[in-house]
């Protein structure tokens, strides 16, 4: 196995993990907030918000990548502002890959968490309120623990999606080894070079292991959560 993977491949794997992890962790609180908004609140523009959240899921990834380039590039309205004020740059850097992965994973995370929130019996939240709990305390002590399986599912789904993201990432930040070349773009790149099948095989095996591992960890955590509730 180690024979199959050279230093370049290892760099791509570690970068992929870092990009996917950062993307998931940054997107999770926002996804929780948006999911709560969509599941519980009625406000004008709710359908519009729902549509915008789902856009990365239905648009061709290349289009999403191009839009990211336009908006978050150094000449773009948001990207330019962030660069001028905070010195943050996304262009051709791993942070850009994380941004692209996070945006592509976002709708999946929102959907899973929203289902979890909708499954929570609002009667329990009412009961907590009659027991003197403020809204914030109801949310943190009743809603959040009961939505936990949904959050977990959303996080794992998001992580897996972020690991596999290709189209938007390569359009937005290209595939620079050590900066933005994640496992999928490394595989794609190697496939263009004759004689690199062993390296491709190694990366494919790693991809399968990572995906299976994420799935097993989520199953295990979900079972533990269910067990805690039934015990």
């Amino acid at each position: 196995m180690t024979d199959l993977l050279g230093p370049a491949e290892w760099t791509a794997i570690l970068l992929s993990l870092r990009v996917a992890l950062v993307a998931t962790l940054m997107a999770l609180p926002l996804a929780l907030w948006v999911a709560h908004l969509l599941a519980r609140k009625r406000f004008p523009g709710r359908q519009l918000l729902n549509g915008i959240v789902h856009l990365p899921l239905v648009l061709p990834p290349v289009v999403t990548g191009y839009l990211l380039l336009v908006v978050f590039g150094q000449q773009g309205p948001v990207g330019g502002f962030l660069y001028d004020v905070f010195g943050i740059s996304f262009a051709f850097r791993w942070t850009g890959a994380a941004l692209a992965a996070g945006i592509m994973a976002f709708p999946l995370m929102v959907r899973a968490i929203r289902l979890g929130i909708e499954a929570v019996d609002t009667g329990l939240e009412e009961a907590a309120a009659t027991l003197g709990a403020s809204r914030w305390r109801v949310f943190t002590t009743v809603t959040l623990p009961l939505v936990f399986p949904g959050i977990l599912a959303g996080a794992i789904l998001g992580f897996a999606k972020a690991l596999g993201e290709f189209g938007a990432t390569i359009t937005f930040v290209a595939a620079i080894p050590g900066q933005t070349q994640t496992v999928p773009s490394a595989i794609y790149g190697l496939l263009q070079v004759p004689g690199s099948e062993p390296a491709v095989l190694g990366l494919v095996i790693v991809s399968v292991i990572l995906a299976m591992g994420a799935l097993l960890v989520s199953e295990w955590l979900a079972r533990r959560a269910a067990h805690r509730m039934a015990a």
């Binding site: 019996d121 009667g123 329990l124 009412e126 309120a129 009659t130 709990a133 403020s134 009743v142």
Partner: peptide, 19 residues
């Protein structure tokens, strides 16, 4: 607000916190 009323409420379906 409900949490400031100091009203004890026993619901038909108990509504105990499952977790």
């Amino acid at each position: 607000a409900p949490h400031k009323r100091r009203v004890g409420y026993v619901f038909q379906d108990a509504r105990l916190f499952p977790h």
